[in-house]
Design a protein around this nucleic acid. Structure first.
Lengths: 262, 262
DNA sequence: AGAGTCAGCTGCTCTAACCAACTGAGCTAG
DNA sequence: CTAGCTCAGTTGGTTAGAGCAGCTGACTCT
């Protein structure tokens, strides 16, 4: 039934053609409109918020969300972290995903990048160099992200662009939290310049190779491949009726320390 | 603060290495554990459920979710439907996304598909033919999905496979609900057989072309391209403080009719 | 005219109670 | 003795009412 409430709110957004940012009915209004209690309305809204469909602002109102891929990053990052800790190769899978998509894309349109995009890429690589010199790790990463975003801007497909940026975000968030690899900024810069040069030359194969080298470099930094499959632990849940002892109470209480987001 | 509760539950899953299907503390336990009211716990769980991170079963308990891409389908489908109704080209963008990823992938590994996978693809195309003859639209679509899934199984990257299946699901759900194109089952079968033959031949370029033809065919069925950009309607929300009249109360009340999921 | 205050929205959290689904122990009837 | 039922006790689902917190806008005092 809670699911039903969500569906009805979604239907309301669809039927009214509400654009991103449009105000939704207030909680009391939704109560009367849907004929359910305040609590149910709130739970439905919370779920929709988690999916990025609505945007709730305290003391202000509820609005149609931007429908970005942000919640997907959240889910992907969590899935990756959880898998990593369970001994799966999730981080490598995520990197392979980026590699597969990006190399496929660059092969498709690398030869027809307009000059203005090339110029922007050039400027970005220059900025990366400068930041590598200055030792500004954070800004370097941001520029790295911008580089990859600019590379696929020419596709004129915002959905695709958002998705790739989402993958980038998820990967870097998890990598930053899980593995503490000593970055070599200069190498990173060089790889990106290689990619740019290859793209500028219009040589599709060379561009693909440069990109693959870049990802290969990243992959080696993840360390040796872990056991391909996880420990196959515990029959995948399936029918866990045996709710034995509810586990020793974990120390979750007041840990605002180590609130590293995960 | 509600966000904080979600984070702490996520942290609990991570820290305890809980696998999919493992039981989580009950709601009263979480209340004491986190020191918040039941209501807040429930709202956090609802949000996590929406992201597929936990699985709530009435009268049974709360469990760690399968972390599948299902919630992403939900979000993607909604985003696409909403965009479509707002005059954007969202459905075409989604199709282009599939095309870009799949053509990129097939180029990478089409030439090294093991014989067993080829045999499975063959069997699937045969089944598609049979279903096309029988006029079983639904089963045909399912087999179509299986075909595309089998095509990328050799990559041994479950994340990638799930994502592609998620794209397929989202696209077909939206297409089924939005546009009522008269399918020509035989053509669909032929296109898939072309892809299979090309892949079997080991000719990468031919495989890529076959796949691109397939998507091109789908694209033409979406009708002529809509205005590249949306109507640019209403400054993208941004700072909608002007909460004017809350809109005429939409008829959402008792519509279990037309509960077509959207 | 400008700054402060207050009433009124908004969403946020808590408490308490009851409803509904499911389990498992114990009872009853065969 | 077993098959089936019933009934307590668990779980999550829903409702109600109260008060708290953030924001806005108009009103008032300086």
């Amino acid at each position: 039934m809670a699911r039903d409430i969500q569906e009805r709110i979604k239907k309301l957004i669809i039927d009214q053609r509400l654009p991103s940012g449009a105000p939704l009915p207030t909680e009391p209004e939704l109560m009367k409109l849907l004929g359910v209690s305040r609590n149910s309305v709130r739970e439905a809204l919370k779920a929709l918020q988690a999916m990025g469909l609505v945007d709730i602002r305290h003391g202000f109102g509820t609005y149609v969300g931007q429908m970005s891929m942000a919640p997907m990053i959240e889910g992907l990052a969590f899935r990756t972290v959880a898998g990593h800790y369970r001994g799966e190769d999730s981080l490598r899978q995520l990197l392979e995903l980026r590699e597969a998509v990006e190399t496929g894309l660059v092969a498709q349109h690398a030869c027809r990048l307009p000059e203005e995009d090339l110029a922007e890429l050039e400027a970005l690589v220059d900025r990366m160099d400068a930041m590598a010199e200055a030792g500004a790790e954070l800004e370097l990463a941001q520029t790295d992200r911008d580089f990859h975003a600019a590379l696929y801007r020419g596709l004129r497909n915002p959905l695709l662009s958002e998705l790739l940026e989402a993958f980038w975000d998820a990967f870097h968030r998890v990598q930053r939290d899980l593995v503490d690899v000593p970055q070599d900024p200069r190498t990173t810069c060089r790889r990106h310049r290689d990619i740019l040069d290859a793209v500028r030359s219009g040589d599709v194969l060379r561009a693909e190779r440069a990109l693959r080298d870049h990802f290969g470099h990243l992959r080696t930094r993840l360390g040796p491949p872990r056991s391909g499959q996880p420990v196959a632990g515990g029959a995948e849940g399936e029918d866990v009726r045996s709710r034995e002892s509810p586990r020793d109470p974990v120390a979750v209480g007041g840990s605002s320390l180590a609130a590293r987001e995960v």
